[in-house]
Amino acid sequence: MANPMQQFEVKTIGPKIEIGNFDVSFTNSSLFMVITVVIISMFFVISTQKKSLVPSRLQLLSEMAYEFVAKMIAETAGSKARPFFPFILTLFLFILFSNMIGMIPYSFTTTSHIIVTFTLAFFIFIGVTVIGFVKHGLGYLKLFVPSGVPIVLLPIIVVIEIISYLSRPISLSVRLFANMMAGHTMLKVFGGFVISLGLVGGWLPLGFSVALTGLEILVAFLQAYVFAILTCIYLNDAINLHH
């Protein structure tokens, strides 16, 4: 029977390239990242080519994506976070599209690898910290000192707050990666059951597979949304500094 984890295997495409000690060969993961970026770019280029007052379906879709993210930023981080709109939109669409492309059979889900999601989360973490220090200087450290805490407890509280802050990129990346990997493994396992149980008992897992596919599409959207909205919340902490 097919190995359910086989779908996550990273294979090099073309020649093996090494810079120093790092293997930087082009892999199927990189290929699907390129495909994701190309599809998103094409989607926006094509959908905004004919700008009409009464939008076509494609134009409506791109406008919806824009408004969805704009509303999300306005609600969670306020108007001061407006300059970061392009970043959040890119992030949201990249995750959404790579999740959705991963739902196509025989494709590869780039977000099912912890290193990919962790890189995204780590850059957000560094970026948000830098933004916080640039906007507030050393006053940003107040984020770790909640008001109204007795001085005796302060050392413990500050350590706890710092750990809580440091755990952000981990929880952000693990959530996305675990959801994608678990979902795809489950789909594959149920798919395997259909084959091994054959015509007699294969109908039940087939039904499950169909239901799980629907659930996975929901999860693909939900996780992209959660990733983007948490980025907005972290940005809000860095820009408006209130706890």
Binding site: I163, S164, L166, S167, R168, I170, S171, V174, R175, A178, N179, L218, V219, L222, V226
Partner: peptide
């Protein structure tokens, strides 16, 4: 209606991530 599953996932990772980071330190 959508959220309960997401909420459960979120809580779990939030808790584990903090323990993980702290133990690492």
């Amino acid at each position: 209606r959508v959220s309960p599953l997401g909420v459960a996932m979120k809580m779990g990772t939030e808790f584990v991530a903090a323990v993980f980071v702290a133990s690492f330190i």
